[in-house]
Design a binder for these strands. Sequence first.
DNA 1: TTCCATGCAAAGGGTTTGCACTCTC
DNA 2: GAGAGTGCAAACCCTTTGCATGGAA
Lengths: 139, 139
Amino acid sequence: MVTTRFPGAAERLRKAGIPPTRQRVAIAEVLFARPVHLSADQVLARVREHMPEMSRATVYNTLKLFREKNMVRELVVDPERVFYDSNTAPHYHLFDVRTGELSDVSADELQVIGTPVLPAGLELEEVDVIIRVRSRAPA
Amino acid sequence: MVTTRFPGAAERLRKAGIPPTRQRVAIAEVLFARPVHLSADQVLARVREHMPEMSRATVYNTLKLFREKNMVRELVVDPERVFYDSNTAPHYHLFDVRTGELSDVSADELQVIGTPVLPAGLELEEVDVIIRVRSRAPA
DNA sequence: TTCCATGCAAAGGGTTTGCACTCTC
DNA sequence: GAGAGTGCAAACCCTTTGCATGGAA
């Protein structure tokens, strides 16, 4: 499968204050062409379709960098691996524990009421909602 | 620190249909004396205070078994390790991303409104809510 | 030339597995 | 003595690290 490219990647990196190297642009193209949920290894595989010399370490470095700049959100949902979500708008997730598939639940469909008052010295980072479901195994 | 023992452990295992071996009872004592959030390694360490010969593999096997019998809940919150929660009543979690500390948020304090209608063939397993906070570093 | 970024390989850490030994019924 | 349970060590997999090379200002 050929991944759709995303032309504005370099622009987007500059706006975030990240010097756009070839590798970072290639990773950004995979992530930001459309909203995706990908593990580091999946990102690596997709980038290597166009750039076979991409190294694993660079993918991990870059994902960490993008996260610090709030360009992606880290999803800790599957004990096996971390997923990166290129949709940073508030929304929630549905996780199929059988297949490992992740999908979005929009913030319109679901509301969290009564987030507790945080003790002094605690700063809210984010609220994750994960609806864990199990799909029927195929016949 | 000496862990408080829990007398009814063997009973509890039998009720769940689990043959109570010495090792399983020791693990149950650590988990069910009171509600705890522990990683597999933390369980191992606490059990070894009383039973130094306990093996890592047995802890992992037993935690998996307890989970299948719904005696503990697996918390996927920290990318570094899975936590096991011995409180199976509905409740949510607050996670300090700086220290890795986990604490409970009762289901009274917080409500999730509008859980989406699941497509046919999807069975709801559970809804996790994780409030990620960051505490101030100590002075 | 200096400094950051990259690539490679090895190390690290949590978890699982293979297999022989032990215990129980 | 059959079968489940246990212990040990090695294997596994995702992620991080060390370090030398490469490239841009």
